[in-house]
Computed example of a mutant assay.
Amino acid sequence: MTAPMDAPESSQHADPEAVVAGAKNPASRSLRQIAWQRFRKDKVGMAGGIVVVLLILVAIFAPLLTAWFGYPPNQFNQQMIDPATGGVLLDPDDPVPGMLDPWGGIGADHLLGVEPVNGRDLFSRIVYGARTSLLVATVATVVCVVIGTVLGVVAGYFGGWVDTVISRAMDIFLAFPLLLFAIALVGVIPDGAFGLTGNGLRIGVLIFIIGFFNWPYIGRIVRGQTLTLKEREFIEAARSLGAGSPHIVFREILPNLVTPILVYSTLLIPTNILFEAALSFLGVGVNPPTATWGGMLENALRFYTIAPHFVIIPGLAIFITVLAFNLFGDGLRDAFDPRSSD
């Protein structure tokens, strides 16, 4: 049972002019239609959404893009590197000692240049780094949403001692030193566990840490929304008709929580991307030679004097990705805000 609405008159005998006028009336449109029209007017949010879609496509089609525009991400191109300094030679075919390329080998063959010391293609590693970052952040966000939604709805709907226990658990998790715990846990994990080995195990541990310890953020939002919704008239009407708790939770409350969950998820993903990049930067994330943006930044700090592009490119990748998700999330939040006006 949803919120009651007045049944419209039959449109079979309606005046065509009235139908056209009703199509322009905001009251005759659904929430999704209104939100989409608001979002389309938000040029900044639309731009962020387009960048997010492009990033997802880049991550999905990373092997294809690498085959078309780059080289394998772990292929060494030592012929482009000066053995004395580790910098990128200005002309690999006719090298002159000390003549380094200030642009890091950027050209038709290497769209974003190459790494110093080993000469790996930066474009390929940025593309595969997007796959790693989005995989960890997206799956971890899904774990956060599932745990936070379940516990938030249970706490808000049932209240009493159930709400007290879950709320105190949220406070404990929010006070937990997550970064230090992640560094300690990832640093001592064995080479194989739970049927996983190598980077598969590392990625699984990262997803577990981020998802399991970040759920209180969305749990608090869901709990607050549930406390508000369970006092609404349509919930009381469902109870008066004999609906039980499972029906009310799954058919009445959860559909009305989709919008805040969706909006907050888009704002949580960039936070998780930064967390994964921070762990990789500290050397306790995904193991090399797998490409990660944080790992590339950690390597770049040792060569920023001879290869500044090696610092700028992965830094820009993280900055653009996080900014795009934040702008997209802000746009969705404004579009679904019932206090916004057309």
Rank of each mutant, 00 (worst) to 15 (best):
D6Y: 12
D6N: 09
A7M: 14
D15T: 09
E17L: 15
A18H: 12
G22T: 05
A23K: 10
P26R: 10
P26K: 09
R29Q: 15
S30W: 11
L31K: 09
L31V: 15
I34G: 07
R40Y: 00
R40K: 11
G49P: 09
I56C: 10
A62M: 04
L65D: 03
L65S: 08
A67H: 05
P72G: 06
F76E: 08
Q79W: 09
Q79S: 14
I81V: 14
D82Y: 04
G86M: 10
V88F: 01
L90I: 03
D94N: 15
P95R: 01
M99K: 15
D101N: 14
D101E: 05
P102R: 06
W103C: 00
G104F: 01
G105F: 00
I106M: 15
L111I: 14
L112K: 08
L112A: 05
E115V: 03
R125A: 08
G129R: 00
S133L: 08
V142S: 04
V143W: 07
V153G: 01
V154S: 07
A155I: 12
G156T: 09
Y157T: 08
F158E: 06
A169C: 12
F173C: 10
P177K: 12
L180I: 13
L180V: 13
A184D: 04
G187N: 06
V188N: 10
L201D: 04
R202W: 00
V205Y: 02
L206G: 12
F212C: 12
W215A: 13
R223N: 06
Q225M: 11
R232D: 13
E233R: 11
G242D: 13
G242T: 12
S245E: 14
I248L: 10
S265Q: 02
L267P: 02
L268T: 12
L268D: 03
I269E: 01
P270C: 07
F275D: 02
L279C: 02
S280W: 04
G285H: 02
P289T: 07
A291H: 00
T292L: 11
W293C: 08
M296S: 07
L301G: 01
R302G: 10
I306Q: 10
A307G: 05
I312T: 06
P314C: 01
G315I: 06
T321M: 07
T321Y: 02
V322I: 12
A324S: 15
L327V: 09
L327I: 10
L327S: 05
G329D: 01
G331R: 02
A335I: 03
D337I: 09
